[in-house]
Write a protein that binds this DNA or RNA. Sequence first.
DNA 1: GCCAAGCTGACAACCAGCTGAACGCAGCGG
DNA 2: CCGCTGCGTTCAGCTGGTTGTCAGCTTGGC
Lengths: 223, 223
Amino acid sequence: MRILLIEDDPVLGMAVRDQILADGHGADWVTRLADAADAVHAAAFDLILLDLMLPDGRGSDFLRKLRSAGNATPVMVLTARDQISDRIAALDVGADDYLVKPFDLFELSARIRAVGRRYAGNPNPLVTLGDIEVDLAARSVRRAGQTIALTAREWALFDAFVQRPHQLMSKPQLEERLYSFDAEVESNTIEVYVGRLRKKLGADVIETVRGMGYRLGTPGGGA
Amino acid sequence: MRILLIEDDPVLGMAVRDQILADGHGADWVTRLADAADAVHAAAFDLILLDLMLPDGRGSDFLRKLRSAGNATPVMVLTARDQISDRIAALDVGADDYLVKPFDLFELSARIRAVGRRYAGNPNPLVTLGDIEVDLAARSVRRAGQTIALTAREWALFDAFVQRPHQLMSKPQLEERLYSFDAEVESNTIEVYVGRLRKKLGADVIETVRGMGYRLGTPGGGA
DNA sequence: GCCAAGCTGACAACCAGCTGAACGCAGCGG
DNA sequence: CCGCTGCGTTCAGCTGGTTGTCAGCTTGGC
């Protein structure tokens, strides 16, 4: 997906942009509405992330113009908790979703995926890995028809693999994904959770690359 | 669709009525609650647009009486920006949606269409979950042939689950659904209401996913 | 054979979620 | 006018699942 980020805060903007890129999407980041208008005019986006308070105007006004110009690109609004009236205005004018700051980057990923699904017109999003079925919306996993319950951490780890199929991920990378920036894990947590996932889903779900990290395996694909 | 407009401001009322007619719906316009009661008594509407400040009473009172009389017609509340407490009251008593004045007639059309879509898709809106039957239009739930009465909040929560079957919903998500945007809830309201729903509908209606949120279960189990 | 990297079973602390009860409030009937 | 009732909300205590950690063991590379 190609995503336009309209956000003037440099710290947040960079974090969000990095997360988008890490999820494998394309990211264009602008800090002013004028630039945003140019970008929208120049290229087609699959999703727009829109901050409501910007140096050169209000996001809701931008959205209104966008909509009345016939542009139906999904828009997700980023808003502080106290910008209630603005947020209502944005929804009224046609925002599709919103995120309240401060938000988890993990949450952001999930919502972006949701929009992607809606955009792709796929009502029942089932990811299939061999004989494993993953329902990202329900956060449930089935193997050979059997539903398997995952805990929050287990799911977070598994999700990291499913999002980037067959991509090699180092342990530090995974730690960052599981724990927010200030990750202070001085133990073998990742190894433990990889082990727990293998026990629940089967040993072939995750492949070890000695010295480098882990990678999605080919479950049931042994045949 | 046949729409009842309850609005005492002559300018706004006329504009809204014209917009409704222009959209190809039928419009009945009254300016007082007494007339509204007569109209509701005389005919069935597909949607009611309800101003909250009226010369002969408060719109929320009208809505309460409507609901307790068993009338489940979708109601969209028209409210000024500063009538927040009234708006909460309206949602408490069973409003389906609201519009903040001043609003675009364009927005109005869009929202009316949304209400239409919500119920139009299924002419017989009976959702079945195992041995539970949900009538979205009538706001009633039956389990094993037994009709179960839900309070406003209980219904709002249950509705959130039924609208997105088997999708995992975090507690913040559900809170926003129950309380609109304002009104910080700094307690375990969701947990309490999940508990009450389980007590009324059965423990298997809602599934807890620790650390992540809740999900519709599979009532009746085996099937 | 040796060493490093990875695996696993166990475990105590923690915390998310459940529950019963209490309180305030508003509507309603007497 | 007043008490009753039902609903919504909050709170505190409890419980059990989840989690991070560690120690010892296994595996793979050289």
